[in-house]
Design a protein around this nucleic acid. Structure first.
Lengths: 234, 234
DNA sequence: GACTGTGAAAAGTTTCACAGCT
DNA sequence: AGCTGTGAAACTTTTCACAGTC
């Protein structure tokens, strides 16, 4: 659950409701943002829970319920103004701010991340990169000069870095995460296939393609709705 | 929910129970597999729900309940034999088989995927790569010769490919997914920031680092348990 | 007439607590 | 004594259904 603070009046100002918003709801909001962004790009000005639900493969009731935690953004009989709802949701998620991000580890994966063009348009600025290996320090990767790990604490503060992307080898992950937490980083995106332990108040999300594949193989062996008769390869 | 077929006797044979296993449970099993693998590597032979729960940051009761959907793998008073439980879980998930995987799109991202060494040790074999662009067709990437999209149907069948990893630009994703489904692929790992629509019986998982970051910024603005006073950069 | 926002009901998921085995 | 496996209870999340507004 996500406890929110402050005053109760949720008129049209997207002020913070004084109630608990389920974490599953927060996890869906970025998807709503993405779909609304696409609709806006297509020139759609008004939408409704039915249409949003189709795009997102979610029931219309769920969308209405989710939005109701934060305010009344729609007009009965009409639906939602796409631009308005998008602005509100971005504000709720803190996406009206820009966020400075550090990348830890500039191996193959860290390199790919630093060169990935998808973060900046969404307000996430990769502003620093760190590595253990003296060979990598001083190199420029994706326009950023790699710094030694010993610079981390100083740079996190001076550059106001609040988010870190960890792309170091598995065995190093926990100690890097510990260091980041110590430096005040409270949001970490972890690319290593490891369950890093963090204190309460710090969030970790993991990107793990193997886990994603492994949860699908179950259904390949016991298909709910068989499409054809293919079986495992081995 | 995951409907499972066949006979009820779940003695020690990991035969399929004739009941429904919640999807959340299936999603956790790969994590159990990973933790058990680590324990085995460290030479731990016996564990218990308490220890597993600590590693996975999950309650011991949840682990016992999850496992109980599939059989009785532990010994009262003793716990679980790590190697035995690992074998059972891998079998349940279909990870005792090898799976042939195709990669669609060999741009920057597809390249990184084909060169990522993490899939093979877990039984996922990248055996084919496809691309639209004639410049890329015929090139060797990560030891695989890139084929034209027109080869897809034939190769999926002849090489018994059941899983596809889609790494094409967003606008091309839906049509590639449609084509894969038509070819009989029922498990798709999608790297594009797009919600692909698929018919029932086909599973899609998405890897989307931006969505992961966006759900964390919410908590950075309304921290449940503040660690320090850092704010957004903008 | 068409849609939202929302209490209340239903469904799903987690946790409790303890009987029972080793 | 120490742990599992599991019904039952508690809690969470989704869906229903409809009053209210545009």
């Amino acid at each position: 659950m996500a406890t929110i603070l402050s005053d109760a009046d949720a008129s049209s100002e997207t002020s913070s409701p004084a109630i608990e918003v389920p974490e599953v709801v927060i996890d869906r909001l970025p998807q709503y943002v993405r779909t609304l962004t696409h609709l806006l790009e297509e020139g759609v000005e008004v939408t409704n829970s039915q249409q949003l639900g189709e795009q997102l493969q979610v029931t219309p009731a769920q969308i209405r319920k989710d939005l109701s935690y934060f305010g009344r953004f729609g007009k009965q009989g009409r639906g939602y103004r796409v631009r308005h709802l998008l602005t509100e949701l971005k504000q709720i998620l803190g996406l009206d701010s820009e966020w400075n991000v550090a990348v830890i580890g500039v191996g193959r994966l860290g390199n790919a991340i630093l060169n990935y063009p998808g973060f900046n348009p969404d307000g996430f600025h990769l502003v620093a990169a760190f590595d253990n290996n003296p060979r990598n320090v001083g190199q420029e990767v994706g326009g950023i000069v790699v710094q030694p790990m010993s610079d981390l604490a100083e740079t996190v503060t001076s550059r106001n870095i609040t988010i870190a992307i960890v792309a170091v080898p598995s065995p190093a992950t926990q100690s890097v995460v510990d260091l980041l937490v110590e430096c005040g980083v409270r949001a970490i995106l972890n690319y290593a296939p490891i369950n890093a332990q963090v204190p309460a108040g710090v969030r970790v999300r993991s990107i793990d393609p193997v886990l994603a594949l492994q949860s699908m193989t179950y259904y390949l062996n016991f298909p709910e709705a068989p499409v054809n008769g293919l079986r495992p390869a081995g």
